[in-house]
Simulated scan of single mutants.
Amino acid sequence: MTLAHDVTGSGPTVVLLHSTVCDRRMWDPQLPTLVNAGYRVVRCDLRGFGQSPLPDRPYNDAQDVTDLMDLLGVEHAALVGASGGGQVALEIAARWPQRVTALVLLCTALSGHKPSAELRAFGQRENALIEAGDIAGATELNVAMWLGPDSDEATQDKVRQMQRHAFDVQLAAVEEVGPITVEADLAAITASSLLVSGRHDLVDFRQIAAQLSDQLADARHLELAWAGHLPSLECPDALNPLLIDFLHETRAAD
């Protein structure tokens, strides 16, 4: 199955990988900025999100994305990943380092991370709401958890729509199909990396960013005082210049 996707612009390719609270629509505020800066932008919906249907057999998100890159003739690209999409980007960069020119990881998740008590409590509350059939309540829980204090009503509504759609798609599954887990060696990553965290995010994601900034060969960590878990949506006017500056810098060094 080919992931639902869109391609806009021309120039070096940037692949955008969404948070698992969202889908590829989360990158609407970045798309015109990246195209105007001279990039070809590929956005895709991971399986069970947006317009990509649920899988009917075991799958691997990183393989799905590289298959899409092959289909589009993309030999190498910069990867920008948010939260769960950041975890996918890390796996791609570790398994196929020659294909990744740069990594931007926004409040990234990390395989094997042990969740904090706050994150576990969130998961338990979300599960309880879903089991009770209160999908609207579970959706509102996610909106409140993942957006920082400066997010406006339009942003909250956008996240609400994307999260509710993901719930509707995934809860309609007749049979649950699990992902294929691949142990990727992060020491194999050669791309320059920008790790962004938000001061209003859960401690988990701030710790992951700090850990990766020490672990990856060429990485820097930037914590945004205003941000929650989804800075690209919360304040794109502040996030976009950071993204473009880093991509230009790594593009010049490529």
Rank of each mutant, 00 (worst) to 15 (best):
S192R: 15
T8E: 11
N36K: 15
Q211W: 15
R40Q: 12
V143W: 01
L17Q: 03
L186R: 07
L222D: 08
G112I: 02
A128Y: 04
E153G: 01
F49M: 07
S232K: 01
D214T: 13
T155D: 05
H248R: 11
T108E: 05
D214F: 09
V7M: 12
H165D: 12
D45R: 04
A225K: 09
A78W: 06
G112S: 05
L233E: 05
G73L: 08
T2L: 09
Q124D: 13
D45Y: 04
N240C: 11
D6G: 09
D45L: 10
L105Q: 05
A62N: 03
L68N: 13
D168V: 01
H229D: 07
V169D: 03
W146V: 09
Q163V: 10
A62I: 00
Y39H: 13
A109V: 01
H165L: 11
I135D: 00
T2F: 06
L16N: 07
Q98Y: 07
R220V: 15
A154Q: 14
S52H: 06
V15L: 13
L171P: 13
T155S: 12
D70M: 00
L105H: 11
R47W: 00
T101P: 00
T20A: 11
D245E: 13
N127P: 00
V65L: 07
A217Y: 01
L17R: 07
R43H: 04
A78H: 10
L147K: 05
Q161P: 04
G133I: 04
T108F: 12
L129K: 09
C22H: 08
M1R: 11
C44V: 12
W146G: 04
H18Q: 09
V35Y: 09
Q30D: 07
A109W: 07
L31S: 08
G50W: 01
D67C: 05
G86W: 09
V74T: 14
L224R: 00
A172M: 10
L71A: 12
Q163Y: 14
W146S: 10
D28N: 13
P231G: 00
L243T: 05
V42Y: 08
G85W: 02
M26H: 08
E118L: 15
A219F: 12
L224N: 00
H113P: 00
L243H: 03
P32W: 07
D6V: 01
A238G: 01
A37V: 08
T101G: 14
Q156S: 11
L141E: 02
T250W: 02
